[in-house]
Design a protein around this nucleic acid. Structure first.
Lengths: 185, 185
DNA sequence: TTGACAATAACGAACGTTCGTATTATTTTG
DNA sequence: CAAAATAATACGAACGTTCGTTATTGTCAA
């Protein structure tokens, strides 16, 4: 859907809360009312943008990573896909900004986001499990901890990359990832 | 300043962009115009909130951490102070949410935030250097990398703690910190 | 020591704009 | 022609901002 695509891009720049019906209508060359008819509230629009983002995310980040063989190749592919995903969105990963925005804003949007983030962390955990099964990680490696560590790394990269202009950020990320993987081998 | 204190709390919940003159006036039992006269624009208000936050942050997080002796004690104190800081603010660390908000929103607010974040990362780097000098870290430890790793860890903790309801988040953070420190010893 | 005057702070009212939403019309399409 | 999609128009509320005014405080000459 073209509206959601524009909405996603706008949300990545201004945050989900910054997407207004009027500005999104202008961006899609539609009338405010015509666009509004598609959703029935702003909350619905926000949720549909989030779910659209999750579909794009799964398609571009998760699925192609699973094509790689379990262990380090799959992990590195996932990280690179994630970085590619954040660099395509003008203002960065929508889930990162939304997580900050909705940390204390109850409602259906937050619940949706929470579900998605739990799914994502589950995904990271399963990737660690597949690494164990493939013999790339220690048998007793803590998969939940791995998910925490890896997500933290991605968040750190995101902040460095989007806010600061540190030209060495990519190197920092690679070094951290190598160390992280080593800690679990 | 009482206005800035209320503004900081509001900004931690709704983001810096979510602080409106009207709502802040209501929260401080002032008139919109009376409050507005203190700042001369919303942008000024946002910047003053950020700078107030930086003062509180330095006073409650950085300064008391420096009372501990260099090395692991100082690092753990800093981390614990940071966590305490984020838990006091209703909606979490204002710098984290602002970093997400202003990753693609040029202007004076972003410039101010960028300066502050560079200062913070410098602070982390210096703490690693003091750990080296005290013999707690390897002589060739990469202090810049340490700053990246530690800040990433804090960001991961922040997301887990504020968004998800993972009761094991504190344990995850401690384990990650122990591993992180070990990597540099 | 008092009276005049400037400065400061806060006020309520209103500006024009944008917000999300509702109702009603018009167009497009099957 | 019926139905679905889009547009037009309007609503009340909130937005940031400006205005003119009042109340309080501090300064300084008479």
């Amino acid at each position: 859907m073209a509206i959601l695509e524009a909405g996603l891009d706008m949300a990545s720049q201004l945050g989900l809360e910054g997407v207004s019906i009027g500005s999104l209508a202008k961006a899609t060359s539609m009338s405010k009312s015509g666009l509004f008819a598609h959703f029935q509230s702003k909350e619905n629009l926000q949720i549909e943008i989030l779910e659209y983002a999750a579909r794009v995310f799964a398609e571009n980040v998760i699925v192609p990573a699973l094509d790689n063989k379990p262990g380090v190749p799959r992990i590195k592919a996932l990280v690179n896909n994630w970085i590619e995903w954040t660099s395509q969105l003008t203002g960065g990963c929508i889930f990162v900004s939304a997580s900050a925005d909705y940390s204390d804003r109850p409602g259906r949007v937050r619940e949706c986001l929470l579900r998605q983030q739990n799914d994502w962390i589950d995904c990271l955990r399963r990737i660690a499990q597949s690494a164990i099964k493939a013999g790339a990680f220690r048998k007793d490696a803590d998969c939940e901890q791995f998910a925490f560590d890896l997500y933290s790394l991605l968040l750190g990269f995101h902040l460095y990359d989007k806010l600061l202009d540190d030209s060495e950020t990519k190197k920092r990320q690679e070094q951290a990832l190598n160390q992280l993987v080593a800690n679990y081998q």
